[in-house]
């Protein structure tokens, strides 16, 4: 079961505009669009003029939020899937300077992956502004074969890479952007309890 607090898991305090930033880059996934739309009142023309919105609809209920985001009036780019979005984020950051602030909103797995891109550019994770929106599904690394499974909603589950039965440990690696999956029936092979949908 999920603990009350997981000390290795980041906290996602919610999007708030850093008023002094010279440039704002928003990387949003699915329902994460709502995190920005909810603070649209804070998006002055000055802020919008310095903003770049990168969006991928994955994980959205319904059709996504392209229209609403585009209406904000900032530079907008939509990615078909997460991978190209991360690639574009990498390019944007490589041409950015100190004074640029990064905002991430979406599922925990998405935030974790975007955070890895940011860290490679020397951005301290504590300076990234984050909000968890959408599914509570977890991104899980199998500690045995190192394969990562996206969108895990139940524990235990079967590793899509090596086939071991894994339970999802309440331990999160920022470097990997993933929770840890550990074989549940190592001591008594076959003794696997029924999966519980814990992370919907």
């Amino acid at each position: 079961m999920q603990g009350a607090t997981i000390r290795s898991r980041p906290v996602y305090p919610g999007l708030a505009i850093a008023p002094l930033a010279r440039r704002h880059i928003f990387a949003l996934e699915g329902e994460g669009a709502g995190a920005l739309l909810d603070i649209a009142g804070d998006l002055t023309p000055e802020v919008l003029g310095r903003s770049q919105i990168l969006y991928v609809a994955r994980g959205s209920l319904g059709v996504g939020h392209h229209g609403a985001l585009q209406t904000l009036g900032a530079a907008f780019w939509a990615a078909p899937t997460v991978q190209p979005l991360l690639g574009r984020l990498d390019v944007e950051l490589s041409r950015s300077h100190m004074g640029t602030r990064l905002y991430l909103a979406g599922t925990e797995g998405f935030i974790g992956q975007a955070m890895q891109v940011a860290a490679a550019h020397g951005i301290d994770p504590a300076s990234v502004i984050t909000e968890h929106r959408g599914s509570r599904a977890r991104r899980v690394q199998c500690v045995h074969c190192k394969g990562v499974t996206e969108g895990v909603t139940a524990s235990p589950f079967t590793c899509g890479h090596c086939g071991l039965n894994l339970y999802v440990r309440d331990h999160y690696s920022r470097r990997l952007g993933a929770f840890q999956g550990v074989n549940i029936d190592a001591e008594e092979p076959g003794a696997v309890p029924p999966p519980e949908e814990l992370y919907l």
Binding site: I6, D170, H171, R175, L176
Partner: peptide
């Protein structure tokens, strides 16, 4: 415990799974 998983964590983070002590 897995170094591959824990590398990059701070003192509180890598001790997260230890019961009672926190």
């Amino acid at each position: 415990w897995s170094l591959d998983f824990d590398v990059g964590m701070n003192f509180h983070e890598w001790h997260a799974p230890v019961p009672l002590a926190p």
